[in-house]
């Protein structure tokens, strides 16, 4: 019996070892190192020179950059998450109609999932172009003036947010559509007999039954939004005046432009806690509104 237990343990370890090694080297170890770096002064090759306590944290928090970066991240999240979820929900409800040729529209609605960050950002960079871009062309056609979409510190964050919503809406649509298809038709049939109208069915049946999926989708969109990097790197480079310097971009700049691994790591630790908190809050407050079948 005992020998059997050891045998099972050994065999299980063999199966799990490759995954454990990869996750160990590239996830658990760097997690610990991030915390150590955040408390140290380092060389550009990553050697720990001296232990400085919470110095890196204080320095960053007292800088004007901190407020700006937190503000940008907060506004950016607020602009992208609700918009993406509501838009994807609208598309999913529309795409769930039983019509001829609906499969074609579903493919179109999910297409942005196949668009990479770099390609998507390149396209939007062209659309936002001050003289050649279609948006300003459109505005000028109606006699309005062009907008400096990416070069004004007021508009840039909106432009990056629009791009991000567009990029994330595809996957949210697919997941929400899957959720809608799981709702049994019987529920709708019985409500039709009761004489419920379209919107009554939408708010009394569809959305409550869909709430676990909606909840899941909001969580991944929130996390996605915090992790935005590529579109910012290509569209604005964090500017103008750091108005789009959201947290992951800020980590990138500190570490790989200024070789300040310590400050970058302290921001990485804060990113980790923000995501942990966001996930926790969503579970705590989101869960209550969720209706499980």
């Amino acid at each position: 019996m005992r020998r059997n237990e050891w045998k099972n343990f050994g065999e299980a370890m063999l199966y799990m070892l490759p995954a454990l090694i990869i996750l160990g080297i590239f996830l658990f170890y760097p997690m610990i190192m991030t915390v150590i770096y955040s408390l140290s002064e380092t060389s550009p090759r990553g050697e720990v020179l001296s232990f400085v306590g919470l110095e890196n944290y204080w320095q960053w928090m007292q800088s004007s950059q901190f407020i700006q970066s937190m503000k940008s991240t907060f506004i950016f999240t607020l602009l992208t998450v609700p918009t993406t979820v509501v838009l994807a929900l609208y598309l999913a409800v529309l795409g769930n109609e039983k019509l001829k040729g609906i499969a074609f529209f579903r493919v179109l609605f999910s297409s942005t999932m196949g668009v990479s960050v770099a390609a998507g950002a390149a396209i939007w960079l062209f659309l936002f172009h001050p003289s050649l871009g279609v948006f300003n062309e459109f505005l000028r056609f109606f006699g309005a003036e062009g907008i400096p979409w990416l070069t004004s510190s007021t508009y840039a964050i909106y432009s990056v947010a629009i791009t991000t919503v567009w990029m994330n809406v595809g996957i949210c649509f697919i997941i929400l559509l899957g959720g809608l298809q799981n709702i049994s038709d019987e529920l709708y049939d019985s409500s039709k007999i009761d004489g419920a109208g379209y919107f009554q069915r939408l708010f009394k049946i569809t959305i409550p039954m869909l709430s676990p999926t909606l909840f899941f989708v909001s969580t991944i969109t929130l996390i996605n939004s915090f992790q935005s990097f590529g579109q910012i790197h290509i569209l604005t480079g964090g500017g103008p005046n750091q108005s789009t310097n959201v947290i992951v971009y800020s980590i990138y700049r500190e570490a790989f432009e200024f070789a300040r691994f310590g400050t970058a790591s302290s921001q990485a630790v804060i990113l980790f806690f923000i995501i942990l908190l966001a996930t926790f809050l969503q579970f705590k407050f989101g869960e209550r509104r969720v209706h499980y079948q």
């Binding site: 080297i25 760097p30 990553g46 992951v248 570490a255 996930t279």
Partner: peptide
């Protein structure tokens, strides 16, 4: 394994870069 879902990959990027370097 599941706990690693909570770790944003970006927050481990600095030490990973050092490892590769």
């Amino acid at each position: 394994f599941i706990s690693t879902l909570l770790v944003p990959w970006e927050s481990t990027v600095v030490p990973n870069y050092v490892t590769i370097l």
